[in-house]
Nucleic acid binder design. Structure first.
Lengths: 185, 185
DNA sequence: ACCTGAACACCGTTCAAGT
DNA sequence: ACCTGAACACCGTTCAAGT
């Protein structure tokens, strides 16, 4: 006993994410992850309960990596919102295979809450009434996630990058407009 | 030769969809589909090129089943849009396992075009300028699909049906508002 | 405490053979 | 023309055994 650990949960998730990014979700098998770590597949089960647990871990890692800037005081709510939305899209493009899984789990983890708080903060800053903040956050996040997932999952495969950039900017304008219409002036 | 066919592609897709609806996507194996048709798994390959092709077929079937009402003359564009959106949500709830796959493929098939045409028709009817119609359709559809997928895939699992109904109605109001703001008054 | 070898039930897919 | 039997490479997962 006291045998030095050669891998840990973080290493497992890191290897799995690298495979997912490079070869897609189907390539993420216990065997492939193990091989990358120079270990047998069975060794993974000490650090991950199951393959489903491994995928949950990947989703959590995406959320953790998602850079939501600490609110800069010199920028307004609409810049804060746009920054969070753009960071979300960047994360989607960096991890196209894993990102769509975000639609499958309620945002209950610590890092998910961080992202939500950032958006809710922007909404309050904009002047959205307290009792409308959480519904508004859900719908705003849904639109942003829906776009980002569509883009990386393939629904927009026929559209150019330039077109998608323009679509996304228009989406941000719309969201800003809607939020303003929601405030007392 | 001339042996009577016991199954056809439609039967394969029907069996697969029934399994997906009842037990989820993971339960859709070639073996399970074959068993339901009282046939061996190998028999499916005459009617379906691969499992990926089978899943593509399921997505296409969802689109076909999606009831987009023929535009009723006595209703306005906003009712037409709302009707298409509600039909989309109903389809999602009926086929929660398969519906999320819609985000993975460009809407290039005949039945996908039917749905898109219905929405673009509503937009034109509303008075959206021609050169904005297709971008507006993409963003409106993205919001509706994003919501419906979130709901059936589990992202809103913590929210009550009543809350989700209210969220969806608010989303429809928003979309109507945005479209109006897009017209020449 | 951590990793492995052997084993199990299952998966998608092929190909030649049967009717 | 349509379905099957046999076979292949692979999959996730378990459990007892090794260090």
């Amino acid at each position: 006993m006291g045998r030095p650990a050669r891998i840990d949960r973080d290493a497992v998730l890191g290897a799995a994410l690298a495979i997912a990014d490079a070869e897609g979700l189907d390539a993420v098998t216990m065997g492939a992850v193990a091989e990358r770590l120079e270990v047998t597949p069975m060794a993974l089960y000490r650090h991950v309960a199951s393959k489903a647990d491994l995928l949950d871990g990947l989703v959590e890692r995406l959320l953790t990596e998602l850079q939501v800037q600490p609110q800069r005081a010199d920028a307004g709510w609409s810049e804060h919102l746009a920054a969070a939305a753009r960071a979300t899209r960047v994360s989607a493009r960096r991890h196209p295979a894993v990102f769509p899984l975000l639609l499958q789990r309620p945002a209950t983890t610590v890092s998910a809450r961080r992202v939500r708080d950032a958006i809710e903060g922007a909404l309050r800053e904009a002047g959205v009434a307290s009792d409308l903040v959480s519904q508004t956050e859900r719908l705003v996040s849904t639109a942003i996630l829906g776009f980002a997932v569509s883009e990386v999952a393939g629904r927009f495969a026929r559209h150019s990058r330039r077109q998608l950039d323009a679509d996304f900017e228009r989406l941000l304008e719309w969201l800003g407009q809607l939020i303003e219409s929601q405030t007392l002036h």
